[in-house]
Design a protein around this nucleic acid. Sequence first.
DNA 1: GGGATTTGACCTGG
DNA 2: CCAGGTCAAATCCC
Length: 332
Amino acid sequence: MESNSNNTKSIQRKVVDDLVEGSKFTTQLQLLLSHRHSNHNIETGSLSGDSDLVNELIVKILGCFHKTISVLDPLDLVPDVYVPVAVEGSRNASCVDDSAAPASCNGGDSGDSRKRLGVSKGKRGCYIRKKRSHTWTVEAKRIDEDGHAWRKYGQKEILNTKFPRSYFRCTHKPTQGCKATKQVQKLERDPEMFQITYIGHHTCNVSDQTQVKTETNIDSDNTLAATSFHKDHVNANVQEQENDSSVEVATCMVKQEENNNDDQIKDSCEGSSTDGDLSLVWQDEMMFDDYQHHDQDHHYYHGETSTTSHQFSFIDNDQLFSLFDTYCANAR
DNA sequence: GGGATTTGACCTGG
DNA sequence: CCAGGTCAAATCCC
């Protein structure tokens, strides 16, 4: 009986995933269209009448997605619910947060695993693994500041990799419930460099982070590195790597936090336009730079995160632009 | 002494 | 079942 409901739940979750996907693709399309229209308008100096219609249609489609997703939301199946917002030829900050509230489990058992060995094999604080709603990766040599304080909470040998992966979370997690985490791993091809994967956005108060202590051990061997990046650090090889497409970043997508964190999310959204969330601003700028300058160095893709295997197709700049060109050609 | 890091165990999802 | 992510006691360091 329980397995039955589990089965149903997993099916429903798949449905939700698909819906969310569809919603994201529609949003991408919406942005492409809006971009195309704004270009077109600039070229011709005219206001295209069908632009409003197109946008309206897309908003309707997104609305359908969202309605369905919302229906499933009470079932606690929706890790990230996106609320589409009409594009007005503008780029709003993305407001996506990571999910993953800690599992409330057995009254918050936080057993000591070592002592427990041999005693009753109780469940250690079980948790829900984070769904990577918003991740991006930076390759950096040794970067000194990202404006956030991190605490290392784990290290792990990863299969087929030479160097272990270190896990960091925001120092303010206990006090402010900030859910931002990052993973740091040396690059095999260049051990001087680190691949830093940021997961989720800071919801903590940034003001007390002006004096940050970011120096942390990357691996137990010896290497010390500041595990951070700065917006204008040129070495950073950035890969927008999130379940959402990077295009989506440009539109304001509001994620409904499970339960009660609306205010917090709002804060994080608002923070994204300030220094509270450099990453967002950065992504935002880079993406549009990309649009404008066709900078080949940056690849945005819509892809699969490391462990949670969402089978998304990758879209890099070339694909995006060819898609865009095709659309423009057809539209002429 | 207190905060940060280390590290083995535990837990989850594929 | 396994790889990877997280927990938390032990340990380190200032």
